[in-house]
Design a protein around this nucleic acid. Sequence first.
DNA 1: GCGACGACGGTTTTT
DNA 2: CCGTCGTCGC
Length: 838
Amino acid sequence: MSSFDESEAFETASLSARAMAARPMPYLDDLNPAQREAVETLEGPVLMLAGAGTGKTKALTTRMVHLLNTGTARPNEILAVTFTNKAAREMKNRVGRMMGEAVEGMPWLGTFHSICVKLLRRHAELVELKSNFTILDADDQLRLLKQLVAAANIDDKRWPARQLAGIIDQWKNRAWTPENVPASEASAYDGKGVVLYAQYQTRLIELNAVDFGDLLLHMVTIFQTHDDVLAQYRRWFRYILVDEYQDTNVAQYLWLRLLAGGHKNICCVGDDDQSIYGWRGAEVGNILRFEKDFPGAHVVRLEQNYRSTPHILAAASGVIAENKDRLGKELWTEARGGKKVGLMGLWDGEEEARWVGEQIEDAQAGLGRFKYRENPRSITIEQEAERLAKGGVVSKNVEGDIHQVNLQRAEALSPTGKDNLPLPKTYNLDEIAILVRASHQMRAFEDRFLTIGLPYRVIGGPRFYERMEIRDAMAYFRLVVSPADDLAFERIVNTPKRGLGDKAQQKIQMTARQNGVSLLEGAAILLDEKGIGGKGATELAKLIDGLRRWGRLVGDQKLSHIELAEMVLDESGYTEMWQNDKTPEAPGRLENLKELVSSLEKFENLQGFLEHVSLVMENDAGQDGEKISIMTLHAAKGLEFPVVFLPGWEDGLFPSQRSMDESGQKGLEEERRLAYVGITRAEEICTISYASDRIIYGRRQPQYKSRFIDELPEEHIDDLTPPGIFGGGYGAVGMGDPFGSNIEDRAAEANVYNSPGWKRLQARAAERPLSQPKESRNMVIDAQAISAHTMGERVFHQKFGYGAIIGIEGDKLEIDFEKAGVKHVVARFVSGADDIPF
DNA sequence: GCGACGACGGTTTTT
DNA sequence: CCGTCGTCGC
């Protein structure tokens, strides 16, 4: 039997069932009938089909509260799984808020992966692991596979290891162990896929490591082969809740079905229309099949939408209606009025970016289509408070404070005190999002916004813990904490350059293998035997020496783990490496390292930190200030914005050519769901745009407007495309006279100084000190920036790197960047090359 | 062992 | 067009 200890689990409950049973249930009054049904049907299988914006999270969290409040379950008896840490956190917070101080949190509310780690650590020995196994990320995984591929003498040009990694991931998503891979897959990876998969799994066990897929796969294996363990958890997790069920893959599905198999108290929440992760193993089939899997399942449809105006809902519904194989839902709203979905055809990608930029400035100023919110949708004080809190105005304050401050503001806006607040007629930048199909579309917007000085933030860029410098630093930490971590050793042995190339590393590998020790020890032996000479030997000795010394300092009372981390990075020469690096990325990397070290503060020690980051790879930087959000449609799922722009609706780009080629009709339907997700992110104003010409891979290409545009119901669409540009209005194809009617405007706009956007920017800048006192600090910086720069000065820009100023006009600089060429940039976005932010 | 150069390919992404 | 990867020459 394992280390499983049932009594420990129950101790975490801070409130007995009896004490809770008597509590009142005011939270039920906040629900509509469908939500209420989903919340109150506690026993047996429930499928909650929750359309976009129908209060899914509310229903889910209220259901948890209800389980607790009625004494039906204790906190530790509820298993609640999500896909992202963010969703888990959100749910935890909401349950906590609703329950007050009474509940110590929910120990089994988390992501599939984090819950599986907890479980697997208890039962590691059942799959020949030790409970302190390490979790590899994609990088480590690939490095390992490359070694195996090389050892198998495979031409990795024709058969890249990356491809093998993809194949293995897919197999793991389907819960196939090497023995279970069906014969139909025998030809995978030149017929060697299965063998290499088996070797990879063996190697992982040797390293006492798992990859992300293994977390689920191992647990499924354990449940399938150890009835006693499964039985315990079935008893333990009496109620199961699953968020985003449409995104589950086969392994997750099996895991859930095994756990729920006894009592069948499982409530899955999802929306088949928002299934957009098929390409990474999600099976819409799981949700479509729910009633078969759980006969007698209670199916509840949440269809009342609280997010969007009727036009936006109608547009989204019109598009998604083209899909077959739907469970079928029709969103409706009590809201009336609102603006039709805008549609704009433009000449090319640059013009699209320029136009969206102007639209955003209109939105800020309450001009054009953004003038007055004629949408009479009422919002409550709570909603307004939430909206303001999201706006970042006071988001840096303590949480209790935010609520109060915003409530006051909301009350001030509403003379009657409650409900029906007049909606403000201008939008701030946090209320605006640009959602693109592919990340390369972001560049045009970034360029444009930098030029006109519109602050923006890119959501879901390269994640903090996936950056090279962070992973290097982490490898050093890993090695200090566990000297036998061979993957970490391989990663940093020659970073910074120590003169230890392939040859030397092979020798280390050999010595280690011959002696049956870790690479680090092998290296030490090799050094003793003088199997290596020259610069490499000296440097290697220094590294080994350092690692031993730092290792002894782990847990030292006189030295905090933060100081230790700094010491490691400094003495290893890693920090110095980036300080000597002259590429534009170097300052940012140093900054990231600093941030990494300071994030250590939240942890007791290095081990705790390393454990945390292997699972929680999040990017919480850049939450400061009012900014437009730019992100992919995928990253936008679950979010909402008053104003949404959906650019690039062109066949081939969206729907993406590749997805149609690879997955045919299925692929097209997933793209269509993506369109549905995009439109339904919008609360008030939704604007779709397309260009007739776009630079793709440096080549100018004629584009044809997306087939999804034809699927938009005409009566809910406001075609903003000026006649003449495309040879007609709505419905016209995107191949018209390129130099349409307003050639002068176009020429004028090419010069940003004359563009409407630029003029508006100037006007705004002038009035800012009065209308927006909180901007005054920026104004000081602006003023300094204007006077501080001189012709020819060398400056640094976050995105473009180093460059020399070749023109100054107001706070507008013309800079010849070393890498990026000549750009117009607002002064506040550059700093002197000598005082690099750091 | 390492930097320079050319070939190649190129959605979406969480854990 | 741009970043990655692998080969080649020093």
